[in-house]
Nucleic acid binder design. Structure first.
Lengths: 145, 145
DNA sequence: TCGCGGTACGACCGAATTAGTCTTATATCT
DNA sequence: AGATATAAGACTAATTCGGTCGTACCGCGA
């Protein structure tokens, strides 16, 4: 009911970890998983999804692991979340090929679509470097009511 | 993965329906359910939850039904959603009595809490009357990065 | 060149959550 | 009294999600 999936959570943790160890070494899934007490297998799967979306890049072989593929300021929370969970849609009928039976009757679709847009813009405003900084300047997000 | 529950969806539909028929008559669960092709039983349960939170008021007996308990401009999307699904928390560890094992290690908790705040403020900015209007003036929402 | 430490990926299972139903009780209008 | 509503909780079905496993592949270093 409106929660981030744990996998997306782990993804954010992993990306932030990589951001903090940028320019040091490639971090293996095992290394990250152990640091935060998460199953290695699961963390590996999360990182694989991030790699497929080119958010991180993988290095095979001994002393391999993952590295950020972009600057931390170029990676948004939305990037990470949608890489792992697919597109962010607050309702199932927002999509075009919506199978929401009562599509034409459903009077809340349009307003909810706008709420969805606002949430997307919140999520894409927050970058990994924002999440690492300590000071937090407020930003204004435009909301179409 | 970040979706509104169907029940919350139905709740918004119901509340908007009541707003449109304000000052006409009390709408029964059956009436609303049939109009949008939803099971009567389910719609009834949703309306019961809304009644318990004093968002709508119930009238028993023949020709009874539900009425809005407040002005449409005083009911926010957040009110409706949290009446049905409970408090909106994008992560499970945002809560105080958080059982998130690695609480102290979890480096993303604080930033996510701020994202959560922003989403709450988006949801509480949108009212039922907003959802019924046609014109959509943008509103600015402050986002703590 | 072989083995170890790593990623890649899909199939799979069990647990948890969510959607929806049924039943019984209670209120109120006609 | 009887018809029509809501109230509420127990129950079941369906779906999603978290997590595991097995197997294949890659590449560095001894």
């Amino acid at each position: 009911m409106f929660k981030l999936s744990k996998k997306a959570d782990y993804g954010l943790i992993a990306v932030k970890h990589l951001a903090m160890h940028r320019d040091e070494h490639a971090c293996s899934a095992t290394e990250i998983a152990e640091e935060y007490g998460i199953s290695t297998m699961l963390m590996a799967k999360v990182l694989q999804k991030l790699a497929r979306q080119r958010i991180v890049s993988a290095k095979h072989g001994a002393s391999g692991g993952y590295l950020l593929a972009k600057e931390p300021s170029q990676i948004t929370a939305l990037d990470v979340i949608s890489a792992i969970d697919g597109p962010v849609l607050i309702t199932s009928c927002v999509t075009n090929h919506g199978n929401c039976g009562a599509a034409d009757k459903c009077s809340v679709r349009e307003p909810l679509r706008r709420v969805n847009e606002s949430i997307l813009s919140v999520l894409s405003t927050v970058t990994i470097s924002h999440m690492s900084e300590e000071q937090h300047e407020p930003v204004l997000v435009e909301l179409q009511t």
